[in-house]
Amino acid sequence: HHHHHGSGALAALHAEGPLAGLPVTRSDARVLIFNEWEERKKSDPWLRLDMSDKAIFRRYPHLR
């Protein structure tokens, strides 16, 4: 159930192989992290948004 927010940013994801479903670039990863943060913020208003490279690598090590 993907609803768009204002920016309408869509992340490019790997379609197949071992990385299927994972973001292709760091900016794609940022979109995913932001979208998930927006969702989680509803139940956790104090949740901090962390889109640093460090956060991205921790989450998606293949982007190193």
Rank of each mutant, 00 (worst) to 15 (best):
H1S: 11
H2P: 10
H2A: 09
H2V: 13
H2F: 12
H4I: 09
H4W: 12
H5L: 14
S7W: 10
S7I: 13
G8L: 09
G8A: 10
A9M: 10
L10N: 13
A11F: 04
A11Y: 06
A12R: 14
A12N: 15
A12I: 12
L13Y: 04
L13D: 02
L13A: 04
H14A: 03
H14N: 04
H14L: 04
H14R: 01
H14C: 05
A15D: 13
A15P: 13
A15F: 08
E16C: 15
G17C: 05
P18W: 05
P18H: 06
L19K: 04
A20V: 13
A20S: 08
G21M: 04
G21F: 04
L22G: 01
P23I: 01
V24P: 02
V24T: 04
V24D: 01
V24K: 09
R26I: 15
S27N: 13
S27M: 15
S27P: 05
A29K: 00
A29D: 00
R30C: 12
R30Q: 07
V31Q: 12
V31A: 09
V31C: 12
L32Y: 04
L32H: 04
F34K: 08
F34I: 07
N35R: 13
N35Y: 13
N35K: 14
E36W: 05
W37Q: 02
E38A: 14
E38H: 15
E39L: 09
E39F: 07
E39C: 09
R40C: 07
R40Y: 07
R40S: 10
K41T: 08
K41M: 08
K41G: 05
K42W: 07
K42M: 08
K42G: 09
S43E: 14
S43N: 14
S43R: 10
D44G: 04
P45M: 07
P45N: 07
W46C: 14
W46K: 14
W46E: 14
L47E: 08
L47V: 13
R48L: 11
R48F: 07
R48W: 07
L49N: 02
D50Q: 04
D50C: 06
M51Q: 05
S52T: 09
D53H: 06
D53Q: 06
D53Y: 07
D53M: 09
K54D: 15
K54R: 10
A55N: 11
I56T: 01
F57K: 07
F57T: 11
F57C: 09
R58N: 15
R58G: 12
R58F: 11
R58D: 15
R58W: 08
R58V: 13
R58L: 13
R59P: 01
R59H: 06
Y60N: 01
Y60A: 01
P61Y: 01
P61N: 02
P61C: 03
P61H: 02
H62T: 01
L63W: 00
L63N: 00
L63H: 00
R64P: 04
R64Y: 10
R64D: 09
